[in-house]
Design a protein around this nucleic acid. Structure first.
Length: 490
RNA sequence: GAGCCCGUAGCUCAGCCGGUAGAGCAACUGACUUUUAAUCAGUAGGUCUCGGGUUCGAAUCCCGACGGGCUCACCA
């Protein structure tokens, strides 16, 4: 039976054997570097073509191209690319022996003087070569690279070696998260970590993953949101302002905008209401954009989006009325709301409450038109079981979602702090669940108990990091911004 | 979960009105030695995703499975 990789791998295995026969360890322990490609490029940017220096550098990286029978190598390190010149006259017989057994894809260390070739390429004149890792498998082709989407996701290491754009996307993601953390730290928000394993999945309406703890012999759920634990921390007074940037898990369908595990920022602040969260969303996302693209103007899928605050605020009912001519605030009860929603083309099953019907119309008719950033306020109370009622209209909650490019990017409320009200809301949810709503929330007695010790008035906010990074990196799929997206095993 | 599309060499792709598999890059041998997707000559490389079926004959047509992409539904 022929192994995958076939001859190409066998040839490289043979080269490895020959290297070992020469006393060369194909996987040594360390290599002392004095520079990286970008550093040298910056340092010698004014070195004219044809000029040589006396300066020696030692650098390490992966061979990505070999030209003129290995006379020229392209060496890529994490910072960039530099050319290596391997002339027989400058290398010992041992180094030439190594050179003959090198392949594209091998990781090597190089020592030599810096010069710029007459053609203008910054180059290390190699006087020493060190094998740092022998590659047994060939890299994808240099010109077309690795384009197969499945392979790029399954073998992210290859994608990162080959596709510069992919590398930049993930570097950008890292900058975005770092910028948000830095901004929050500077404003005095405390970063915390709360459990991934929940005994009752709460804080959102979603289907959880179930797992089992053997020693305790109990089922546990991968968290669908950190919300209830974070608010417990406000009860405890650990800080008046805290946040968590971490993974959530939802056992739902996959799509270009849904991965079973995704990253959210959740933030809670005592003594403020949801108004404060609007400003914070704008600041955080503008900061993220500056970190990602250097400004607040961006283009996603050819659509220009301006993120410079402030962003408009519109109520859900107002947007629906403007789009459809139907004012849901003038409708009484679920029945009339459902029939109106159905007439407007929303998907209605027949059990929907007034709020659910309004939201269904909003989702069907309005959502995907909200390209420019907008805070949508006036969310129905009955789809917001963790939010305080609107102080002016009891049918509504003090909740908004921020939409950009038609996507929900942020979700925030004046958090429900009254334990008696919270219990009633949970009980409403349990009734909906009994009637077949699988995603209705579960009554969390421990959480209600915590509220009974007194949760200060507070605002809470969640931002979907993956979708934000998609926008900021112009990535068409969530899998392009998650290093190892969920795939069926092959 | 439903619909549409895709799966050929390590990679990127041709071939798909059925006649038994091709190119470029990568690899190997050699030439060349200041190249930039280096060039030139030659060589080797395939259970055409898998399993059935139709046929004298299947990469090609049909059915099924597996994997992927997109759309819809659910959702962030």
């Amino acid at each position: 039976m022929k192994e995958e990789g076939g001859d190409l791998r066998a040839i490289r295995l043979e080269k490895r054997r020959r290297l070992e026969a020469l006393g060369i360890n194909p996987h040594p322990y360390a290599f002392a570097r004095s520079a990286c490609a970008a550093l040298l490029e910056a340092r010698f940017k004014d070195l004219p073509a044809g000029a040589a220096t006396e300066e020696e550098a030692a650098l390490a990286g992966r061979i990505r191209a070999m030209r003129n029978s290995s006379l020229f190598l392209d060496l890529h390190d994490a910072s960039g690319k530099i050319q290596i010149f391997c002339h027989k006259d400058h290398l010992s017989e041992e180094h030439l022996g190594l050179l003959r057994l090198l392949d594209i894809g091998d990781i090597i260390g190089v020592k030599g003087r810096i010069r710029r070739t007459p053609r203008g390429e910054l180059t290390v004149d190699a006087s020493e070569l060190t094998l740092l890792a022998k590659a047994l498998r060939p890299l994808p082709e240099k010109f077309h690279g690795l384009t197969d989407i499945e392979l790029r996701h399954r073998e992210r290491h290859l994608d990162l070696i080959i596709n510069k754009a992919s590398r930049e996307t993930f570097l950008c993601r890292s900058r975005v998260v770092a910028a948000m953390r830095a901004h929050l730290a500077a404003k005095g928000y405390l970063e915390v970590e709360t459990p991934m394993l929940h005994t009752i999945p709460g804080g959102a309406s979603a289907k959880p993953f179930i797992t089992h703890h053997n020693a305790l012999d109990i089922d546990l759920y991968l968290r669908i949101a950190p919300e209830l634990h974070l608010k417990r921390l406000l009860v405890g007074g650990l800080s008046d302002r805290l946040f968590e940037i971490n993974r959530c898990f939802r056992n739902e369908g996959l799509s270009p905008r849904h991965n079973p595990e995704f990253t959210s920022l959740e933030l809670y602040e005592s003594y403020v209401d949801y108004e404060a969260m609007m400003g914070l969303v704008e600041t955080l996302i503008a900061e993220a954009a500056r970190a990602a693209v250097g400004g607040t103007s961006l283009s996603y899928g050819g659509v220009s989006i301006e993120l410079e605050p402030p962003w408009p605020r519109r109520s859900m009912a107002e947007l629906v009325a403007k789009e459809t001519g139907v004012d849901f605030l003038a409708l009484e009860g679920g029945e009339s709301a459902r029939s109106a929603a159905e007439e407007l083309g929303a998907r209605i099953e027949g059990r929907e409450s007034w709020g659910e019907a309004l939201e269904a119309v909003f989702a069907a008719r309005v959502e995907d038109r909200l390209l420019a950033p907008v805070h949508v306020t006036g969310f129905p109370r009955d789809i917001s079981p963790l939010a305080k009622a609107d102080r002016k209209d009891p049918r509504l909650a003090e909740r908004f979602e921020t939409f950009i490019y038609g996507w929900e990017i942020a979700n925030a409320f004046s958090e429900l702090t009254d334990p008696l009200d919270q219990r009633e809301r949970f009980e409403e949810q349990m009734r909906a669940r009994a009637l077949g709503d699988e995603e209705a929330q579960l009554l969390d007695e421990d959480y209600v108990r915590a509220l009974e010790y007194g949760l200060p008035p507070c605002g809470g906010l969640g931002i979907g990091i993956d979708r934000l990074v998609m926008l900021l990196t112009d990535s068409p799929s969530i899998r392009d911004v998650i290093l190892f997206p969920t795939l069926r095993p092959r």
